[in-house]
Amino acid sequence: MQPPVILAPGARNKQYWSDLWRYRGLLGFLAWRDVAVRYKQTAMGVLWALIRPVITLAAMWFIGWLFGSTVPAGVPRILLVAAATMPWQLFASVFDGVANSMVGNSNLVTKVYFPRLVLPLSTVVVSLIDMAISLAVLVVLMALYRYLPGPEVLLLPVFLALAVLAALGTGLYMAALNVKYRDFRYVVPIVVQFGLYVTPVAFGSADVYNNPSIPAALKFLYSCNPMVSVIDGFRFSLFGHEMPVHWPGFVVSLAVSLLLLLLGIRYFRRTEKGFADII
């Protein structure tokens, strides 16, 4: 028999993390629901999962070509852009999904108990499924250009995980704030839209770090963006030493993203008991 549950104001739930594990089935079902529902009553169905990344990719490639960002020799521009568009889309979709996960499921929050982290985590699973489709597109592109990545490609999952962590931390903050102040519903798309311009998607980090006209302070600020390390790492793992990582910037960016994750989980855990009261 499980140990007794104590209900009291501010009582710490000692079984939270084991509960979360026990509810992993629910996590899976919720993710499955979101995927299953998405393409119901659509004529093109799952094709949409392909159309979205391909169109974004084309747009980003065009912008990079227009402004003539640096492309190392031997690397097709489209692959360089793809290597950034995909992690960025992963970030954007995790961030958006997590931030709206509580409000979008308010009917569950007010009627059933489960560790509330189940909801944001289930949207992460959905985003990862989308990512898998994008990766398939990337593999096809590489085959078309007959490009074979080096052994660095084994690091790819690490950078994917980093993208998820960065998005999860900030997203959890948004999710909790969104429960109380619906203002944050409007903040999310702004972050996603604006973030694209301060993240090396259409350009490369080298364009920033090697540009003498950008002041050092601004470069530091640039490296605080958690997605900088993710995308730099992503490109590194695909193109190896053609795209060397700017290590000091990488470390700052990584630290910021871990800090955000920690703060996000803490804030979410602290406020989640009141969600059903105010959602």
Binding site: V5, I6, L7, G274, A276
Partner: peptide
């Protein structure tokens, strides 16, 4: 409160078993 959906403001309760609640038909 007993179903752990909302937190009590004061006092305490102890629940010694696996609990399932049906507060609405067809939740979710």
């Amino acid at each position: 409160v007993i179903s752990r959906i909302i937190d009590p403001t004061e006092g305490r309760a102890e629940i010694r078993g696996r609990l399932a609640s049906l507060l609405e038909v067809g939740t979710g």
